[in-house]
Amino acid sequence: MENFKICFMGDQSVGKTSIINRFIYDDFNINSQSTVGVDFLSKTIFVENESVRLHLWDTAGQERFRCLIPSYVRNSSLVVIVFDITNKTSFKSIEFWMDTVQNERGDDVIVFLVGNKTDLEDERQVSLEKLEKEANKNGFLYLETSAKTGHNVKQLFRKIGISILKQNKKRKELIKPELDENTSLMNISLNIDPNKLKQKEESGCC
């Protein structure tokens, strides 16, 4: 089974650890311990008849730890940027997190934007319109969750799984034509027309 590295980032106490704990243990502690440095958890999920092993890297949110983030983003298949819908500052930080990701990886990584704490709807400071705008501008996949109630958490990881599988298939298809040429001596025929594949690839991007 293939492993995929997923990196969680976002400001201090927006709920990164809590989202992961809800997903792994289906549990919620009002006061989970602050993450120092980086934490690691893994879980297998089943999506579209395939199993995917997710390696979840949970990073510390305090501003001072930001200089360490690039090394965690390296080799990630997917990045989840989390903010707190009741905290404007954490929303403003998205730009910073996005720059970090792009500096390290360019556009070669899937980004999910997650607004957490929907259970505190009364205290919402970030309007849905603003979010939509931000997500569309950057081409993010956006979802709102509540680690406390569990709202949308399963959905989030299902979507993560689907996106990863999709990207993985794309990658493999891109590599295959080359393989085909090189391995023809070994009498392996994959019956793939590289041109067709490329077309498919291009249309798949839109």
């Binding site: 989970s32 602050s34 305090q62 501003e63």
Partner: peptide, 12 residues
């Protein structure tokens, strides 16, 4: 602000 965010999360 930074300290206050960690109070609940120290020795929970």
């Amino acid at each position: 602000i930074d300290i206050a965010k960690d109070l609940d999360r120290t020795f929970p």
